[in-house]
Design a protein around this nucleic acid. Sequence first.
DNA 1: CATTTCACCTGGTGGC
DNA 2: TGCCACCAGGTGAAAT
Length: 278
Amino acid sequence: MPELPEVETIARGVHERLRGDQILEAWFGSHKEPFKNSPGRQAAGLEGRTILSVHRTGKHIVVELGKSGAGNLNEPTAQWIVHLGMTGRLLVTTPDAEVAPHTHARLRLKSGRELRFVDPRRFGRLEFRELSSDAAFTGPGKEPTTITPDDFAKLFRGRRLAIKAALLNQTILHGVGNIYADESLFRAGIRPKRMAGRLKRDELLRLHAAIQEVLAHAIQLGGSSVSDYVDANGVRGFFQLEHRVYLRTGQPCLVCGTPIRRILLAGRGTHYCPTCQR
DNA sequence: CATTTCACCTGGTGGC
DNA sequence: TGCCACCAGGTGAAAT
């Protein structure tokens, strides 16, 4: 479900609500899928630690954790990294709140609340990093919200794949997914199938600007709620009202009236206007 | 190495 | 109502 704007919204919400709280106990479900390292190791690492801050890197949520007693409490000694996959949610609840189906993790907090991870399709991932032995998480690719136009243009030099496939490749640029790839390419006037390495400089500059505008606007609106996305407070986003091509197959282009076309590209539904995008 | 395809999951929708 | 095909915000392993 979630791309960069949704993950950013969730990370901000969790940060605001849980900063300074302490994890007393971690409970994990029995499905193996969500765990990049074992639930036992994650529970042992999480229990007793303090939540210093929560932020986003690409599509990952990074919870910075401190340890009381030894050294400076404000210096992170561990990280809990949450990837939401297609259907993952992170929710802050009261302990008596009904436990949703497909709840895979419940962290009981000193404040009396719980942080829960719910994910029906189980494409999401949970990882614990002990910073004394593991590297700090940096994300798989470059950060689209801060990359300069020049560095952005360099990413696609010599690449022989469709620009949309390149945008979806997280090791190149992390955070853009299917919705924001389609919406950015529409706003830049570029066909999704265009070979990335053959785009002209002015096209790449338009795409860079479109991506940063779309992501910033979507973050302002709390992300896109296509079916059931909600943030850490259970609130839906509103950027779906701003979609110009995504899931608008057959409907008139809002600029020129041409019916929006849907094709399959890189295995994903891809939406574009055949008139506005060249 | 770069690129493409497909498996991994559940659930919702729409046709018959 | 049931059954089935198809679709969905994402990756990573395997194939090409």
